[in-house]
């Protein structure tokens, strides 16, 4: 299983990278960590004519705290750097909780945060995290810079708003409100494998009532899904077991569209959504209360 030939460019600066992407247009493809792209190329399912390798663009690798208590993450920051980062653990414990579920260490040592966002695999954790955390995507090209909200970034499976000459250079995560509770639940066939369904929840409490809630699903639709029912039903309410169960049921039936594959039927995966939304919301509420 050897990849087909391609032209290769290894710019050492962002400027050079943007230039190259503009030159290459549709024939160019960004190579970040390569942990999804290269396997696909080895199977010859992906055959880019040219690769623009960002691994030497060191300026794109950083984790910077922002003034609002958030983080700016450079697109080439390795997954393992995020996983091991103390500041990430402190500001976004949910990210630290999710990261070990992404493949295995050897992959996380090479895979990048921005690469995963731009790859937009509907079964991947990082796009869903970016949606949960209301990330802002910094997109740069020779034509100029622009910011796109995570909600508007993902167009479909492996499809985003990025144009061939564009580069996602930074993911900006706004700070969490103090007292935010978060929780991640996934079911995969095996540790490190693709989730058959997953739910990530974020809850802010106001006394015994929910002040704010956000639940994102992934692996059960063409893009990660920011659900609506939890906000509609739970905000301003006491999150009772029954209320959470009802929300989970509604979300499973109405806010996802899982398919059937060799590992599970749509019905089973809907069942998982129900269970995981309930478990993740319940835990996020508990954590928010602490």
């Amino acid at each position: 299983m050897k990849p087909a030939p391609f032209d290769y460019f290894a710019p050492t600066s962002l400027e050079e990278a943007l230039e190259k992407l503009t030159d290459l247009g549709y024939s160019g493809k960004v190579l970040a960590g390569g942990q999804s792209l290269i396997p696909a190329m080895n199977f010859r399912m992906a055959r880019p004519a040219a690769l623009v390798d960002l691994n030497k663009v060191t300026e794109l690798s950083y984790i910077k705290p922002t003034q609002d208590g958030g983080l700016a993450i450079g697109t080439m920051t390795r997954d393992s750097a995020i996983e091991d980062s103390e500041v990430v653990k402190r500001l976004f414990p949910i990210i630290a909780e999710v990261m070990p579920n992404i493949a295995h260490k050897q992959i996380r040592n090479r895979g990048t945060f921005g690469g995963a966002v731009a790859h937009a695999d509907p079964a991947a954790q990082i796009p869903a995290l970016s949606l949960l955390l209301d990330a802002k995507m910094k997109i740069q090209s020779k034509k100029g810079d622009r910011w796109v909200d995570a909600q508007d970034f993902f167009m479909g499976p492996f499809m985003t708003v990025l144009e061939p000459e564009d580069l996602l250079t930074e993911v900006l995560l706004p700070g969490l409100v103090p007292g935010t509770g978060t929780s991640y639940k996934q079911i995969s066939r095996q540790r490190g494998g693709y989730a058959q369904a997953a739910a990530i929840s974020k809850v802010v409490m106001d006394g015994i009532k929910v002040k704010d809630v956000r639940v994102v699903l992934f692996s059960v639709a063409e893009t990660p899904v920011l659900t609506k029912e939890p906000v509609r039903v739970l905000v301003g309410q006491v999150p009772t077991t029954e209320a959470i169960e009802a929300v989970a049921e509604y979300v499973a039936q109405n806010e996802c569209d899982p398919g059937t594959d060799i590992h599970g039927t749509a019905e089973y995966r809907r069942n998982l959504v129900r269970v995981l939304v309930r478990r993740s919301l319940t835990e996020a509420v508990e954590r928010a209360r602490k």
Binding site: K2, Y8, Q35, D53, H104, K105, Q106, N109, R110
Partner: peptide, 24 residues
């Protein structure tokens, strides 16, 4: 496997374990 799953090709790159079959 040459698709990054089995780990037989694991080497250290700058001190970190990586799968050499999915790196150019």
């Amino acid at each position: 496997c040459e698709h990054g799953l089995c780990g037989a090709c694991t080497v250290l790159m700058n001190g970190e374990a990586v799968r050499s079959c999915i790196l150019f």
